[in-house]
Design a protein around this nucleic acid. Sequence first.
DNA 1: CTATTAAATCGAAATCATTTCTATTTAGAA
DNA 2: TTCTAAATAGAAATGATTTCGATTTAATAG
Lengths: 139, 139
Amino acid sequence: MIFDFPQLLKSLQLKVTPQRLAILESMSTARTYLSPEEVQGQVQLRAACKVGLPTIYRNLEELSSQGVISKILHPNRQLYYYFCANRDHHHHFVCLVCRTVQDIHDCGCAALAGQIDGQVDVHIMQALGTCRRCCNQNA
Amino acid sequence: MIFDFPQLLKSLQLKVTPQRLAILESMSTARTYLSPEEVQGQVQLRAACKVGLPTIYRNLEELSSQGVISKILHPNRQLYYYFCANRDHHHHFVCLVCRTVQDIHDCGCAALAGQIDGQVDVHIMQALGTCRRCCNQNA
DNA sequence: CTATTAAATCGAAATCATTTCTATTTAGAA
DNA sequence: TTCTAAATAGAAATGATTTCGATTTAATAG
Ligand SMILES: [Mn+2]
Ligand SMILES: [Mn+2]
Ligand SMILES: [Zn+2]
Ligand SMILES: [Zn+2]
């Protein structure tokens, strides 16, 4: 799967900066969710371009709020981010051992609106656990 | 609904301290979710007993991990807590305007385990929005 | 009712992920 | 090329949460 990141950024009304391209490049090739500091490390490795942590934070948040990447609410209370090519509404299962991510296609949230006396603006849904590979390695 | 908090604490293997009783008392009568600082304020008002913030934090976390109260993941990234008498597995809809909470009885998470290649240890699920009362007041 | 002790509390201080600030640079439009 | 709003960098601040060591206390047993 190949991404036209400059085009993507333009469509989001964001300037195409080397920093943003490096962040997107790193996120899209990561096989696990990453902390902002880890993203910085990846960027430095791959793009040999130094990007300040505030810039990383600002862009991860921007990309996340625009739906390009998704935010992982880790039990350790820090934020992690994950690039998911799947553009449809869906959620994630997160392996806390190896940090891989699986899509949850049927989150059952369609049934939500009906039972709420009010208007649902967002819903958070996340499953956390141990993937099969990691389960097997433990046993 | 009346609670035997001393008995509850004993069943959790926790010492029955005035601080804990004051915290439980305050939580159980609150009609909205509360921040740890707000819990401290309530405790001071009702019990006229000064409780340090670290004690509040420690106990809210303890009670939450034992399932006595539930944790609200607010978009502002701070933690809030809410006492819910409903002991069954369920989730919450949170009004971000007036901070009231509604139970979500059917979270659809039964369908979860089937589509995950691994073992789900916990799932987070929370709906955030505006309750009907608050919707109407805006319009 | 003491004595004992592990658990709990306290207040001050530390932590540290995240945000803010200001000066400087730069992408993109004209 | 010129211009300008947007973006970045680095240093510093923020502030919710946690840690620390000293002190108190609930619960248990004698
Ligand atoms: Mn996904
Ligand atoms: Mn509830
Ligand atoms: Zn795994
Ligand atoms: Zn409301």
